[in-house]
Nucleic acid binder design. Sequence first.
DNA 1: GATGAATGAGTATTCATTCAT
DNA 2: TATGAATGAATACTCATTCAT
Lengths: 209, 209, 209, 209
Amino acid sequence: MPAQPPKALKPRKTPSQPRSRVTVDAIFEATIQVLLSQGMVGLTSTGVAERAGVSVGTMYQYFPNKQSLVYALNERFLTTLAERVEATCAQMHGRPVAEAAEALIDTYWAAKTERPELTRALYRSVAELETDALLHAFATRVDKATTDMFCRASDFSSPDASEVNVLLTTVIYGSVRNVFERGLGPEEILGLKSELKAMCRAYLATVGK
Amino acid sequence: MPAQPPKALKPRKTPSQPRSRVTVDAIFEATIQVLLSQGMVGLTSTGVAERAGVSVGTMYQYFPNKQSLVYALNERFLTTLAERVEATCAQMHGRPVAEAAEALIDTYWAAKTERPELTRALYRSVAELETDALLHAFATRVDKATTDMFCRASDFSSPDASEVNVLLTTVIYGSVRNVFERGLGPEEILGLKSELKAMCRAYLATVGK
Amino acid sequence: MPAQPPKALKPRKTPSQPRSRVTVDAIFEATIQVLLSQGMVGLTSTGVAERAGVSVGTMYQYFPNKQSLVYALNERFLTTLAERVEATCAQMHGRPVAEAAEALIDTYWAAKTERPELTRALYRSVAELETDALLHAFATRVDKATTDMFCRASDFSSPDASEVNVLLTTVIYGSVRNVFERGLGPEEILGLKSELKAMCRAYLATVGK
Amino acid sequence: MPAQPPKALKPRKTPSQPRSRVTVDAIFEATIQVLLSQGMVGLTSTGVAERAGVSVGTMYQYFPNKQSLVYALNERFLTTLAERVEATCAQMHGRPVAEAAEALIDTYWAAKTERPELTRALYRSVAELETDALLHAFATRVDKATTDMFCRASDFSSPDASEVNVLLTTVIYGSVRNVFERGLGPEEILGLKSELKAMCRAYLATVGK
DNA sequence: GATGAATGAGTATTCATTCAT
DNA sequence: TATGAATGAATACTCATTCAT
């Protein structure tokens, strides 16, 4: 997810020595902790450094400013998410479209639901960052994998795979986000998820003909 | 949208005198302007007051703190949105479900798209507020209207209207949000919208039987 | 001394209300005190504000940054100095050049010597500021007055008044500065001053013929 | 220039081994570069070390703190300057005072003008250091040479050589400094220099009798 | 009611200096 | 001896909020 982070957000130096690596990891973990407990507002540079057991100065050696911290965090999670989606896509090559769509739903849903609080925090954090480039890079990368998956589906015959892809991904990603926004309960979520699958199946059945 | 705003966010006094009303409107308009030009970060109380041609002191007479400003702004827009959705729902009573769903899509989409920058700004602003209650109240109010519309549809026979409602609204609201997040172009958006309608139709055709 | 202060150094608002005026004066006085006791290095924003019996915030309401404080201080003193030189020049119109030169020496010397520590502090402060424009404006203004004075001298017959003026002022202003740099004692200073006058007389006697 | 540098400013070890000498020279050169490009404000220890291709740690082996760097730089230049003045003085023994004075002007002027930007930077740097001792040592050393030169002049008959010396050096050194402060152009400078010589001649002609 | 001067807690960020490797 | 990661004290500056006029 190169994405050319807005220069001001690029990490300062990539840790090579083992000592550095430990330090950077600690900072990342601390950022998450603080983000979860205090929210974006309570995320102060001293707070993070303290939690990481590191001095502020050290933190600034690796991250040029507070934003870059959260930016890097988002980048990390989006990269992981992209990888998981790609893995699923690869696995579903040659399978029926409906199954492919369902697999995508499962993967994306799982990834976002594993640490719900963190997901929520990151969703919020994005609002205060200039993450357009980041999100765009993510979308491009993932779109490629999913479009590919749909194209290669055993029963896919739509003329415009890209159009189908945009619809499905928009609906899926959007629904997940909306679920977090509404704060639905677990049972509702399950029901919703299976209905969403049904919806995709119904749509694909229509399109394919 | 009663929603019991977290007490700290409640406007101080509801303006009844005409002079006050003008003042409050000016403040609202200024808030929007600043939000659009400087973003949530650049939204300072003095900045808004200045733009509104009012002294800070006066502003604090109507809004107990900065958040309450943005909170009220969101409330306003959500109320308008709710009203529009309700109007649509009322109008669609007794019509086929598919048409109802499409009308909902059109209305919601239009409302969010009219001032895209403002929509984007408000989406972002929400992340920094404690708007759970607000959003929940909106959801409840609107859900009632849409569920009602679906129930009364001429051809609706699903056992669980509420389940259908949750799915449709989640998908619709979520998709719109995702469109803003991805920054899709106008043509893509149009295509997406019509496909979304097709998807809903396909799903409802399945469910109804 | 308009001098268009580098925009970053321009005062934020000019105090009009009496309350403000008092505040600004207090800040000025505090700046001098701190400058004298701690030097340019010890001049911290909180330090000045504290000494002025004012909050930092108030200080920043009038001065956009620390430098602007010292800049304004220099501006003040240069303006006063310019006025005094101009007064002297006006008074010496039509008198012999030598007398005019001596009067200039006396005035300049007196102005710089009255509060030697402050003079020293300001000389030093200039080094850390972008005062080129300020100094240039001062030079231009004062040069006009002195050149004029020399031109109108009863016995001035040199073809190039401006050249004479540059020499004399450079020598005088430079000597004064050097005196502060060397840290000469009071008696040495007195001797130096009278010798400097003799030197100017001797030079002018040569030039005039 | 013994000058007893304030103990905190004394270099830590005088490099004797060739390797050290190279290091120290690199540091000096880097200091000058940074001083020229970033000014006294941008002169950070890490910045200098980096430019010198040395680690901070190494730099601190030779200079106990940042000031000492600049202090040493000034010392170096003042020493060179003193040597050049002494050489000139030695050469002018037994020559007429006027010529001696002119030679002094030429030498001093040349030394300060060769690298004008560096001269300017050093002039400024002095303001932030406790250089009184340094400057005093320089003055004493150079005064001795110049006074001596004037005493031995073929036509010098003034009762008080020291008084003459103070005047001449103050005027000369001060004028040069003022030239830098005013930012005069090259032609103006040339004219000024020759007029300054004329002035000294005129004065000495008077004094000698 | 309205004003806007004053407040000051709160925070990001820098940079000289140290010291374990 | 050299290195450069880590330190943390120091400081400029902002901005929500109050309250005397």
